[in-house]
């Protein structure tokens, strides 16, 4: 064996790495890159089976890590056949209120998205209902326990009216009616003011001021899906940037 060839073979043996060396290095680099990312881009996706959305749109509740705690956000994304990548730009665009690029992993709504935010996305879907035959006292107890200002009154399972704090003050307490004997259906506000879910938040704010109401019931294809109150409007507004 010539001398030069023997030297090169020994050098090659010295440089030779153990099996899987490069794979380990790659994994380490990948983990290092991941650790640099903000914590907010680790959403847990959870399919909401009870959502009344059409097939083309899927409703998800996304859990975002903001600082140390997880926050839940309900969003709608367009299904494109396959799995949805929560980190994709289209997802973030559609979701509206998630911006994981902010240093603290916050959820400030960009002004452009805020103006286009639909009422169906931000309305409160947990409607508190009560039968009209029940007493006003029971309604007051429920409102106090749940820390809400109104109860949707139903008759035979269908929406009939809404009993609010104002009704309690002006119709019941001011007239000295007995709370135990007074039935809810006799003192509730009628008729209900309903808006379609496709209306934007700004439009709903205008409707509320024009019609002088604080609560709008949100419908989808004629079916009641949620309620949008002035406090919800404040909540949505608070998410917008301060220079908006």
């Amino acid at each position: 064996m010539p001398k030069r060839a023997r030297e090169s073979s020994t050098k090659r043996e010295e440089v030779r790495r153990p099996k899987g060396f490069f794979l380990v290095r790659k994994r380490e680099a990948r983990e290092k890159r991941r650790s640099r990312r903000p914590a907010a881009i680790k959403p847990k996706l959870k399919r909401d089976a009870a959502s009344p959305t059409p097939k083309s749109l899927r409703a998800f509740s996304v859990q975002l890590k903001v600082g140390e705690r997880w926050m839940e956000r309900r969003i709608q994304v367009k299904a494109r056949g396959g799995a949805i990548n929560p980190h994709s730009a289209s997802f973030l665009h559609l979701s509206g209120d998630i911006s994981p690029f902010s240093p603290k992993g916050g959820f400030i709504t960009p002004p452009s998205l805020f103006s286009r935010m639909k009422i169906g996305e931000v309305a409160n879907r947990k409607l508190v209902k009560m039968d009209g035959g029940k007493s006003v006292l029971e309604a007051c107890r429920l409102m106090g326990r749940k820390r809400i200002g109104s109860v949707l009154v139903t008759l035979n399972g269908h929406p009939y009216g809404i009993f609010t704090e104002r009704d309690l003050l002006s119709k019941v307490l001011a007239k000295g009616v007995d709370l135990r004997k007074a039935k809810l259906k006799d003192y509730s506000s009628r008729p209900l003011v309903m808006v379609d879910e496709n209306y934007t938040v700004k439009e709903c704010a205008r409707i509320m001021s024009e019609m002088k109401v604080r609560r709008l019931l949100v419908t989808s294809k004629g079916k009641l899906i949620g309620i949008f109150t002035s406090s919800d409007l404040t909540r949505v507004l608070s998410r917008a940037p301060l220079d908006f």
Binding site: L155, N156, H158, P159, Y160, P191, L192, V193, M194, V195, Y199, I207, M211, L216, L217, T219
Partner: peptide, 14 residues
């Protein structure tokens, strides 16, 4: 606000 009359009562639709 338009009053809509349906089977189970009437409501106002904006």
């Amino acid at each position: 606000g338009t009053t809509v009359r349906d089977l189970f009562g009437d409501h106002v639709e904006v």
